[in-house]
Nucleic acid binder design. Structure first.
Lengths: 225, 225
DNA sequence: TCAGGTCTTAAGATTTCCTTAAAATTTAGA
DNA sequence: TCTAAATTTTAAGGAAATCTTAAGACCTGA
């Protein structure tokens, strides 16, 4: 999810963009002129600006320059019917991050947007709960900067517990997260749980606990001594 | 001044590009096919790759993917007569940094190139990971200023692991980086890995480790004792 | 061409992880 | 307190992945 500002005076295009991007989970705000855009930009933060060149009260190129001169580095992607090279070069030199000629396809827009968003977004998602940190992409679990070696299932269980830290996670939650088929001997969970606990105990000395809630499930908690 | 590799089979375009970019002070190397390009890329470092899609011995899209899979993050700018959205999307998702449709103007190319070059302008000839240093062009590996003699394949594996240090490198990654053909006995990797580990062990005394991640692949790590 | 190093294959040994099972312990409520 | 159900621990087994080593094939440079 990203906050995106659309500055576009063609209501048709604006509408289509809004619909599509909202479906992609983005939070959209839009305006059709430079004056309002400038006001909005001074008031709020955005992750990306989609900017038309030809606008009723001025050129998008000028707005872009103004934004950059104000020290604002919010990425700007131009969308414009102006296809001539001069305009593109001007835009890019003026601080734009990309320039897409109209008409364009939604897929190309999305892929170019994502390139930019990814570049400007904060690095890797790390799940954490106090001094417990899990990097699912690297498959590294750390407690107080100490690496804990976990099997795949153990890691999945710990991720589940950490994502809902403080809340109860039921045995059914775990089963359905770990297995496709339903016909699984469900005492297996207990076994994994035991191994997981042992490893956490050895690493943290009982301060990070998986507590069981009788008849309901499990809950991950730090024990403040 | 930047080192740029042009991969383009139209001699006309290739010539114009070369001339223009040389005038701009860049150092150019060029080839017209994928096979040679891959050889060149494995031997030398570039700051930017200009890549055509339609090439006599394959698709530029595949080459791009292969480059990325090998852990090489050299920026790639596509230049292609294919103007359809699908191809653009494929390219961008495959790790390209930009895609410019033919015919294009020299000014727009330059401005897009500069955008990318500026962003990546941390020229890095030698790959390093702590006290491990690899010079791929000279084929010299050093740990704590001590030279380690490695076979070609061992070196390539180590480069791969070092480029993605801290991250998991899969067996498939290694296979596709080391071999053209897909029908390779994949236990061979184990064997190389064993030899490589032995050499690292002898040189560093177990502080630089290739750890295996069961079911996923390998990861290069310094063991902080 | 030959020698020395490098690469690949193969096979057995080892390790890791998951599951099952059974015995031990804890819990809630009668 | 007592009992049945829920939970925990531990051990054992098997499947799959990985490691090691050795032997022969293969380059490659002098």
């Amino acid at each position: 999810m990203n906050k995106i500002l659309i500055i576009e005076d063609d209501p048709q295009i604006s509408k289509v963009l809004k619909l599509n991007l909202k479906l992609n989970g983005h939070e959209i705000e839009d305006t059709n002129n430079i004056t309002d855009a400038w006001q909005i930009l001074r008031a709020r933060h955005f992750d990306l600006i989609l900017l038309d060149v030809g606008l009723p009260d001025g050129s998008g190129l000028d707005l872009c320059q103004k934004i950059r001169e104000s020290g604002d580095e919010t990425p700007i992607l131009f969308l414009s019917a102006r296809t001539d090279e001069t305009t593109v070069v001007k835009a890019m030199n003026g601080g734009a991050n990309d320039y897409l000629r109209k008409p364009f396809g939604m897929e190309e827009l999305k892929v170019r947007m994502n390139k930019i968003l990814k570049r400007f977004s904060l690095p890797q998602q790390i799940i954490s709960f106090g001094a417990l940190k899990i990097d699912p992409s690297k498959r590294v679990v750390t407690v107080m900067d100490q690496i804990i070696a976990l099997g795949r299932k153990e890691m999945e269980i710990l991720i589940l517990l950490t994502r809902r830290s403080g809340d109860i996670v039921t045995r059914e939650n775990i089963l359905s997260a770990l297995y496709e088929s339903a016909d699984m001997y469900d005492r297996t969970i207990d076994s994994h749980m035991s191994h997981l606990r042992k490893k956490l105990r050895e690493a943290t000395g009982k301060t990070l606990q998986i507590n069981s809630v009788y008849g309901l499930g499990y809950r991950l908690e730090w024990k403040t001594v």
